[in-house]
Design a protein around this nucleic acid. Structure first.
Lengths: 382, 382
DNA sequence: AATTGACATTTGTACGTACAAAAAATATAC
DNA sequence: GTATATTTTTTGTACGTACAAATGTCAATT
């Protein structure tokens, strides 16, 4: 358990690093902090003394305590460190090794070092990672946002980076509340193409699995709805299963329930990503649903797990390594002074990769009113 | 007029610098100093705290206050970051993603964060990474040594970690100059088994490609020599090609020259690792040397590139993910106080994985003195 | 002789009171 | 309006009490 003075140190340091207290600004008096934190004045003083020793604060008798610039001059040795910080939600899973390979490759070409931290899509861990990077004084940052579809209190840190002219760029998603540079797959287009592919294969009963806390989830849902609309197919909310980072552990159970309930309603699923797509394959195997005979599935991202599974998942491309290279390239160029003509928003267009999980229903598409019963008949013949 | 605590500081510092209190010696207790100087205990503590910050003293609860050496830095304070630093030579290539996966997985189970830096097997970048970790104050470290077979001036940092009781463990190799905990593949055994396999397949003209700046290179050479010795085969230095991190870029050219010169001398190669093994395959393709008909090849480490190449390389296992997990487990246990019975040296035993790059020569092994001319005759017949 | 448990000792955290010293704010005089 | 004196505010030094946490010591037991 942290001592009280350490809680104060951490809080005040956090406020300094995030720009709540800016350099030269006077922080609340010892007496005010005593009341704010419900501690004794001695405890406040102990915290302030330690922060002064670390160069964050400077006290003046009779006047007050001010944010010092000593820590900043230490972290301001940007060109000396030649290090780029990378903050991602995960490191060794899914498409992240490929992204990191792209980043690392490009950085090595310019002899930049890489400092990498992961957040596990958790706001507290993102905060810690940001403070680490700020404290050390990285030259630039490549950041994958955490829970990008929800409000994030760490946004203050990004504003602080902007203020200190530390170039950073976001990948995979961005905070819509901020005007920041980013590189993203066109998530709308990805789901749109997936849904459109299923429509072109004769599917009219198409479900969707969505992730609610990431911006990708929102726009992949948008693409799904857009393609339904173009095909004059109605959007049914009960054909959508939504989950988030915290409920991901229960996805297997929720999928089982969802697919059982919709067994006779759906002929196809557009999944949030390949990981979810393969989870659907797994659950269908448990429920005795034949893929793709009874249910067609499309994942997204073209991850290695889609390519290496027992059944080759139909999926959409994700720029992965190229996006990593481009992000590193952007930061390097920014650091080398050529920031004027760098793009602030880059979208990558997805391409469909055919696998073994989509079945064409065109043969029985001549009479749409009998589609479901024809499907049941077809099933009895095999 | 000097404050009382400054009088104490000056007096105690003077006693330390003059040798009255020698390094490692316990100075009088707070209570005794209170009586000696006729001040309050708080005033004594203030003096001791400042001397501790300056590196002159070190206090231990329940025990006393000791004279420290002056190299002790402020980063010796206990860390509350719950972050483990990992320093590896590379991040996204070869077997490193698997190792990192193991580390990350174990750390996540205990809610530790991961901070990752790579050195590219360069001493300066290792120094930078170590300073970053020290500066931030990680709770523990997992380190893959840089140029582990050469003297490394950064060894002082590892001594500093030891002194500050920051638990760290090395993976893949260690510095033989230091008595540090480590987890390693048994590199002697790996090359020994590779060479022995070739011997058992009838090969007597066996070459070796070695890496001189890493400890693995030294011990894999040792295993090669050991197996030659057991088979009563002579060790020929001209059948060994050695390279290091800096000359790696020229490996292709040097391999071409080496394999051309030894075209009629060698029937098999034990390679430092899979990467080198596949490079040999590549060069042989250029030189028109048929694998494994004319030259058998064994790599080491069972990396994904060995499993996914056009030709499946015969190789030896490396613990990769398991070793990563064990390293993280070791550090976590150390941090949780259970340091007494943790192993200081762990070796993993390699196992041969058969591929498509080794040919058996047993049919023509009956007369060893005519082996080379028989091989030439055999070649003319095809 | 080795181990265990109880107790003493020592440092660490946190609260409080009191006064000193320097800067800032306000009042007063011109 | 400006200069000076006085008061208030804020940090700095020093004292004290109380309890927690870790280490060290010693006696009893096996």
């Amino acid at each position: 358990m942290k001592p009280k003075y350490q809680v104060l140190i951490d809080d005040i340091k956090s406020k300094i690093l995030s720009g709540v207290y800016s350099v030269g600004e006077r922080i609340p008096t010892e007496s005010a902090l005593k009341d704010m934190y419900c501690v004794s004045r001695q405890t406040v003083r102990k915290a302030i003394l330690e922060l002064s020793n670390e160069g964050f604060l400077r006290s003046e008798k009779g006047s007050g305590t001010y944010v010092s610039n000593q820590y900043q001059s230490k972290s301001g040795r940007k060109s000396y460190n030649k290090t780029i910080g990378v903050i991602t939600t995960y490191i060794s899973d899914y498409i992240f090794p490929s992204i990191i390979r792209g980043i690392e490759g490009r950085l090595n070409e310019e002899n930049y070092s890489l400092l990498l931290a992961s957040t596990n899509n958790d706001v507290e861990q993102e905060k810690k990672a940001l403070e680490m990077m700020l404290s050390f004084g990285v030259d630039g940052l490549i950041i994958e946002p955490t829970k990008s579809n929800l409000f994030n209190p760490n946004i203050a840190y990004y504003l602080s980076f902007k203020e200190h002219d530390v170039p950073f760029i976001m990948i995979n998603a961005y905070y819509e509340e901020l005007d920041v540079p980013f590189l993203c797959l066109d998530d709308v287009q990805s789901s749109y193409l997936a849904t459109k592919e299923l429509v072109s294969k004769g599917h009219t009963q198409i479900g969707h699995i969505s992730k609610s806390d990431d911006l990708q989830g929102k726009y992949r849902m948008k693409g799904y709805i857009k393609a339904l609309g173009e095909a004059k197919l109605r959007f049914h909310p009960e054909k959508v299963l939504s989950f988030d980072t915290e409920t991901k552990l229960e996805l297997y159970i929720n999928l089982k329930k969802f697919l059982n309930e919709n067994r006779d309603e759906l002929t196809a699923m557009v999944c949030y990503n390949d990981e979810v797509g393969l989870e659907v394959v797994n659950v269908c195997r448990q429920l005795g649903i034949s893929i793709p005979d009874e249910l067609s599935i499309i994942g997204q991202d073209n991850s290695y797990i889609a390519r290496n599974a027992n059944i080759k998942l139909t999926t959409l491309t994700h720029p992965q390594e190229q996006m990593g290279r481009d992000a590193a390239d952007w930061v390097i160029k920014k650091l080398q002074g050529g920031g004027k003509d760098l793009p602030n928003e880059t979208y990558y267009h997805p391409v469909l990769i055919e696998g073994e999980t989509v079945k064409e229903l065109k043969k029985i598409n001549s009479c749409e009113s009998r589609q479901l019963s024809t499907r049941c008949l077809n099933k009895k013949m095999y």
